[in-house]
Computed example of a mutant assay.
Amino acid sequence: MSGKLIGALVALVVAGFIAYNSLFIVSEWEQAIVVQFGEPKRTVVEPGLHVKTPLVEQVIYLEKRILSLDLRPQEVLASDKRRIVVDSFARYRIVDPLKRYQAAANDVIANDLLEKVMDTTVRNVLAKVPMQNIVSGERSALMHEISAITNQRAASFGLEVIDVRLKRVDLPPQNSQSIFQRMETERQQEAAEKRAEGNRDAVKIKADADRQVAVLVAEAEKKSQVIRGEADGRAVKIFADAFGKDEDFFEFYRTMQAYKKALGQEDTSIILSPDSDFLKLFVNSGKKK
C-alpha cells in the first residue's frame, strides 16, 4: 500500500473523528448546555444539528418535557394540633437550563432541591388551617397556594412548577384506632338517643290511642244505654197497651216467655205440683176455672 493512500486514510479517520466530536443533535424533547471544562458556554433550545469545539466542549442534555416528582409521605401538624400524613406529587419542567445546571448538576440533585422546597411549603401552608379544612372542600385552594409558592421558589434554579396535588391525607396509624373508637362511641350514643326518643314517642302515641279508645267506648256505651232504655220504654209501653186490650193474651204471652226461659235447655228437669199455676196451660190449656 502506498504512502499516499495511507495518509489519505489517516486524514479521513481524523476528519471523521473531528466531525463526530464537533457535531451534536438536539431532539424536539431536549435542550442542551454546551460547557467547556465544566463552565457553561451557551444554551441550545432549538432542535436540530449543532456544532461545538471538539475535545474541548461537552454537551449536557436536559429534558424539555413535563417531569414528575412523587414526594415521600410526611407527617404534618395542622392548626388544630392534629397530626396528619400527607402524600403529594408535583408536575414541573425546566424553563431555564442554565439556572438548572448551575443549581443542580444532574436530575437527582434537582429533584432533591425541589422536594425540600415542597416539603417546607406543604408544612407551612397546612399548618395554618385545621384538619377539617384540609380534607374538605378547601383542599383545592390549598393545593393551588402550595403550587404558587413552590413555583416562586423553584424559579431560582430554573424550574417551573405546573401543578401540585395532595394524593392522600390520612391520620397517623396510632391515631386512627382512637378516632375510630371515638366515632363508634358517638354513633352508639346517637343511636341510644334515637331509641329513647322513639320509645318516648311510642308511649305517647299508645297513651293517646288508649285515651281515644276509652272515649269511643264510653260514647258507644252511653249511646247503647240510651237506645236500650228507649227500647225498654217502648217494650213496656207495648206490653201495657197489649195488657189493656187483651188480658188473656198478655197472660198467655208472659207464660210462654217463662216456659222458654225455664224449659229452653234439653237437659232441663223441673218438678212441680200438678196443680201449680206454672203448669196451668198444660193442665187445662190455659182456661180459667
Rank of each mutant, 00 (worst) to 15 (best):
M1R: 12
G3L: 06
I6H: 05
G7R: 08
L9F: 15
V14F: 11
A15R: 05
N21E: 05
L23G: 05
L23C: 09
V26C: 04
S27E: 10
S27C: 05
E30C: 02
F37L: 06
G38I: 03
P40Y: 05
R42G: 02
R42T: 01
R42H: 05
V44H: 02
L49I: 13
K52W: 07
Q58I: 07
I60D: 00
Y61D: 01
E63S: 13
K64S: 02
R65E: 07
L67C: 05
S68H: 13
Q74G: 14
E75T: 14
L77D: 05
A78M: 15
D80K: 01
K81R: 12
R83D: 04
V86F: 02
V86H: 00
V86W: 08
I94K: 01
D96A: 06
D96C: 03
L98P: 01
K99A: 08
R100V: 10
A105M: 13
D107N: 12
D107I: 09
V108C: 07
D112N: 12
L113P: 02
E115G: 10
E115D: 07
E115V: 07
M118D: 00
D119H: 13
T120G: 11
V125K: 00
V125W: 04
V129I: 06
P130M: 08
N133I: 04
N133S: 12
N133G: 04
S136R: 11
E138F: 03
E138L: 08
R139F: 04
L142H: 08
M143R: 04
M143A: 11
E145F: 07
E145D: 11
E145N: 02
I146G: 00
I149E: 03
T150E: 05
A154P: 00
A155C: 06
A155W: 06
S156D: 11
G158K: 00
V164Y: 01
R165K: 14
L166D: 00
N175A: 14
S176Q: 14
S178Y: 07
S178P: 01
R182D: 00
E184V: 02
Q189I: 11
A192L: 10
A192I: 04
R195Y: 09
D201G: 08
A202P: 01
K204H: 11
K204S: 10
K206A: 15
K206H: 12
R211T: 09
R211Q: 10
V215M: 06
V215T: 04
V217L: 10
K223N: 09
I227E: 14
R228D: 07
G229W: 12
E230M: 14
G233L: 13
A235Q: 09
K237Q: 13
I238Q: 10
I238E: 07
D241C: 03
G244T: 03
K245N: 04
K245R: 11
Y259K: 10
K261D: 11
A262M: 14
S269Q: 09
S276P: 00
S276I: 07
D277G: 09
D277E: 11
F278M: 09
S285N: 11
K287I: 15
